[in-house]
Design a protein around this nucleic acid. Structure first.
Lengths: 235, 235
DNA sequence: CGGAAGGTTGACCCGTCTCAACCAATGTGG
DNA sequence: CCACATTGGTTGAGACGGGTCAACCTTCCG
């Protein structure tokens, strides 16, 4: 139980919660483990509650009628997912599975809703979390409709760069997942990812070495997002 | 002022609010009018508050670096938009403009946040509203990635059918906006919309007469969403 | 050694975008 | 009242981006 309490306390939703309330909520939660590739929730399943990721990576995704999959987001500790499902009825709106062996905390619906009603501060945190999800989805929809494969990759790399500690040496990214997984996040086929990467590399914008990618000049990479790109027209 | 109170009371966010609280909130709000095509908010602008649509239609959209636009959603009375902007910082996440002459109520940030802190019931409504937006965005992203132009149109028509009063005569839809606007909502060029429509019509799935579209057999139209469509392979 | 998983590359195909012509309905000014 | 422009929509031709299929390579592992 004390482990659950610690896991919750790290999550932005709860990190300012009074210890007593945290303890109480933790008592109502359940620790859950999933091995790599195991499913956590299925689209349409009734919503028991939402999840805090304590360890490991979780992939949130949709499945098309013909079986194709599309990753919507990868959730890392100490964040949460499926919060929105609790208020909209109709079950979970997407699938989720473990990208690595994962430890999760299931926060059941009722105890959590009680907390929200009683703790305005907790409610505000929840609003912030939902808003962040919305912004993320908006960005994704924007990326989707306005950018081509190269620009999507560039925008992904720049986002990853921004996630790193400030002034952390040279601009280098270590991909934490297989490239085909990243391709799915970006809404493209693995082959297209590979080609986009090759294009950016031959334009001198990135240097690829396995799963390590260097960006000598982030500003130049950023320019890809605007006007188009003549990379393929070398002839 | 009493007009503002009435407008607010119709909005799902506030329709169960105690009259005294409603009155108080209304006192802090501002009535706003916009003519057709006038801008309401711009992406990145600091967030003063969010909006309830009292009359008219509002288009929420993104603009690409090269000027292309993409409609994300059309908000109709008595619903609201830009709620999420209040919690995420960084200003409004998209543009909004009036599709028709519109009457709006601006609910300023601070008075509203105070209400949320003091009224758990209001907070619950807010969660529901944010969750609906998230579901809508998820659906849109799903549609975007899995469906082709014909299937997008079919899914739009079926959605519109479901919005109509139950048992309201034959399955007919009156498009309330120009087709090129709907094309933008569906993320396709107007020409593509026109062709998708022609395809469905020549397959006998819909009957088009100007802006009026009939669906003789909704179940058949639904089948388009699953497997693919041989409509163009008539030869 | 053989096999599986991750990744790259080439060839080809298909869907959608773009550009352009065209049409109908509606207005506008002389 | 007519010439003309404007707006909304349809249709055709061509180009292009990205998906698919297939071959191949490397690394890792049993």
């Amino acid at each position: 139980m004390t482990e659950i309490r610690t896991d919750l306390s790290r999550c932005p939703l709860f990190d300012r919660l009074a210890p007593a309330l945290l303890e109480q909520l933790a008592g109502a939660c359940r620790a859950i483990r999933r091995r790599k590739a195991e499913t956590i929730i299925r689209e349409g399943e009734p919503c028991e509650g939402f999840f805090v990721v304590a360890e490991g990576l979780v992939r949130v995704y949709k499945i098309a009628a013909d079986g194709r999959e599309r990753t919507l987001h990868v959730v890392r500790p100490p964040h949460s997912f499926a919060e929105a499902a609790m208020f909209a009825g109709g079950g979970y709106p997407a699938f989720a599975s473990a990208l690595e062996d994962a430890r999760l905390v299931l926060v059941p619906r009722e105890p959590f809703c009680r907390l929200l009603r009683e703790q305005p501060e907790a409610a505000v945190r929840m609003f912030e979390s939902l808003s962040m999800w919305m912004h993320r989805l908006l960005d994704q929809l924007e990326t989707e409709t306005f950018l081509n494969a190269r620009a999507k990759l560039a925008s992904y790399l720049l986002r990853e760069l921004r996630r790193r500690p400030a002034g952390a040496g040279p601009a280098r990214i270590e991909l934490a997942q297989p490239k085909k997984e990243i391709a799915s996040q970006l809404g493209m086929a693995p082959e297209t990812f590979s080609r986009a990467q090759a294009d950016l590399e031959s334009a001198g914008l990135i240097v690829v070495a396995g799963r390590s990618i260097q960006v000598p000049d982030p500003a130049a990479l950023d320019a890809i997002l605007l006007g188009d790109f003549q990379g393929r027209a070398v002839s």
